[in-house]
Design a binder for these strands. Structure first.
Lengths: 254, 254
DNA sequence: ACCCTTATGCCAACACGGTTGACCTTATAG
DNA sequence: CTATAAGGTCAACCGTGTTGGCATAAGGGT
């Protein structure tokens, strides 16, 4: 039956639900975020979302083709929030850096939703807007199209990968997260230097650093790489280091 | 009922199943890997695994506390395989690169387990062994302890973050994954140049590159960064670029 | 101001998922 | 040889996404 989902722009009749709510794509997405925050990653079910909206679960299918489609809409909303809270206008490096950090922290604000959507490509307007901005910054900086695409890919996947990883830790039950964090001060710090010399020599530094995100470090390294590419292609003709060829590893969608 | 799962070492009576198979933890894990490979990535269900073993689904609960527990067992198996299939002995850069790729592809071979375990720190022997190897390579290359720890953190989180991201895509139902991949050739390729000039100019390159993993590119960039740090600290005293300070973003466990 | 079309909410049902309690069988300890 | 309990099986429970059919009310056409 819901082969035909009416797009939001074409909606006319807004019938209130039995309990008075008037549904809309936006209301459903906002409620989904609330349910996600309250009930955890696995807590977003059609029935629970319906209950939270005061509507029958099947009513959702008038707005989304399925829970999968809904998840993409949620991801799109996160992208939009990040973009709204960002402003460019400085040099490409500062802009890219602040955009990456904005995306990262925006996903981290909703860990459950991040875990759910970070590995999906929604193809919706606000995500497309983010992609367009990134590509614009890279090409505007002077990169060739192949290099811009290569670094766009690296930038967006890096950002979303860390968003998902860090969000995954935040989304754990409190006790499990605490146990994971204390692992560095307990298990690792007690390893004998004889069998694990390198861990033993750096145990205190590890315990201090591991509970934080490595995203800023890796992001800056990537920005260094982009700057190096710009310097190389600016002076001489082409090329940079390493076997950065196009031979992909694995099959990915994002 | 399965509050009490008998550990593998304490098992004595091995009753054959109705269809003749003799169950064991190892047989179940191996069969789970086979089912994952054959029935697609979303095809590992208790009922299907039971059928593949020639046993009732509930028999699994004599060996594992639940499907979650079984997934962790599969994950452990993967860590072991990654470490076993790797050999160092060349320069630090080649060793780090092959180790990263080995970990990445090993997790990707079993996406469900990867998604489930990538953001956890288990503190188990094989994982500790991997950490010791990485730290050893970095310190052996000549990095100071703070730099070694910083790059160890970046390396392991980067690898696991991409493993989880890429695995998340692979773990999607087949049709959803296909839809995601075709998004680049459909939605993005059709955006008008007027509104989205940068995407329009690079649409074909994007469609060609995005279905692959960006991990190798980012990994090589990180290795470039390590090499730069070595060169800088080798000649002059200290320092590298960027605001890489210790002020963490977010709270992480891994 | 009316009516008629149809968008849209609701209900009941389906297939499939993990999980469990009760039962039965048989391998092994004593 | 027997008693015990490990471990396989069966049936059932509950929660999941999803859909076909039906009821209703919104709002444009007249």
């Amino acid at each position: 039956m819901p082969k035909k989902v009416v797009p939001e722009e074409a909606r006319r009749r807004r019938r209130p639900t039995r309990q008075g709510a008037v549904l809309s794509e936006d209301l459903i997405v906002q409620t989904a975020l609330r349910v996600l925050r309250e009930h955890g990653t696995a807590g977003l079910t059609a029935r629970r979302l319906g209950a939270a909206l005061g509507a029958d679960p099947s009513a959702l299918y008038r707005y989304f083709a399925g829970m999968d489609d809904l998840a993409r809409a949620v991801g799109n909303e996160l992208m939009g929030r990040a973009l709204d809270g960002w402003s460019g206008g400085r040099d490409w490096r500062a802009d890219l850096r602040s955009l990456g950090l904005a995306l990262h922290s925006c996903y981290l604000a909703h860990p459950q939703a991040a875990v759910l959507t970070a590995s999906r490509v929604s193809g919706r307007p606000r995500e497309i807007a983010v992609d367009e901005v990134i590509l614009g910054l890279l090409r505007g900086a002077g990169l060739s199209d192949p290099a811009a695409v290569r670094f766009y890919h690296a930038f967006i996947d890096l950002t979303l990968a860390f968003a998902a990883l860090d969000a995954g830790a935040l989304a754990l039950p409190d006790d499990a997260r605490r146990a994971d964090e204390e692992m560095w001060a307990s298990t690792y710090a007690r390893l004998p230097a004889a069998s694990h010399p390198n861990i033993a020599a750096t145990a205190d530094r590890l315990a201090a650093r591991m509970p934080h995100s490595a995203y800023p470090v890796v992001l800056d390294t990537l920005l260094d790489g982009i700057a190096a590419e710009l310097a190389a292609s600016g002076s001489s003709g082409r090329r940079r280091s390493g076997p950065h060829g196009g031979s992909g590893v694995g099959i990915r969608s994002r």
